[in-house]
Simulated scan of single mutants.
Amino acid sequence: MESNLLTGTGAVSAANDDFSEYVAHLQLHMTLQARNLVPSLKQTQEGSREQLLHQTQANFEKLISRQGL
Rank of each mutant, 00 (worst) to 15 (best):
D17E: 15
N36A: 14
Q51T: 13
G47W: 00
V38G: 01
N36D: 15
Y22G: 07
L69H: 11
Q55G: 01
S65V: 00
E46C: 00
T56P: 00
L52V: 02
T9W: 08
V23E: 09
I64Q: 06
G68C: 05
A11T: 14
N4M: 12
L26R: 10
T31M: 06
S13H: 10
D18V: 04
R35P: 03
G47C: 02
S65F: 00
P39L: 01
T44L: 03
V12F: 03
G68D: 07
H25S: 07
L32C: 05
N16M: 11
L53D: 05
A24L: 08
L32P: 00
K62R: 15
Q43E: 06
S20L: 14
Q43P: 02
Q33E: 11
S48R: 01
A24I: 06
N16E: 13
L41R: 09
M1N: 05
R35T: 09
L37Y: 03
Q27L: 13
V23N: 03
V38T: 14
S20E: 09
Q67K: 09
N4K: 12
V12R: 05
Q27V: 14
L5T: 05
N36W: 09
A15I: 02
S48P: 00
T9A: 13
L5W: 03
L5H: 04
Q67M: 15
L53E: 07
L37V: 04
A58H: 13
S20V: 05
V38R: 12
Q57E: 15
L26E: 10
Q57N: 12
T56L: 11
N59M: 08
G8D: 13
Q33Y: 06
N59S: 09
K62A: 11
L52G: 00
K42R: 11
L69R: 15
A24D: 08
A15M: 05
N36E: 10
S13K: 08
N36G: 15
E50S: 02
G68I: 06
D18P: 02
E61C: 00
A58W: 02
Q57Y: 14
E46L: 06
P39G: 00
S20R: 09
F19Q: 11
I64M: 10
S48W: 00
L26F: 04
E46D: 09
G68L: 12
G68W: 07
L37N: 03
T9C: 10
Q51P: 00
A24G: 02
R49N: 10
F19K: 12
T31S: 08
Q43V: 11
E21G: 04
L41I: 12
T44R: 06
Q55I: 05
N59L: 14
S48Y: 00
A34C: 03
P39I: 01
A11G: 04
V23F: 06
L53R: 01
K42P: 01
K62Y: 14
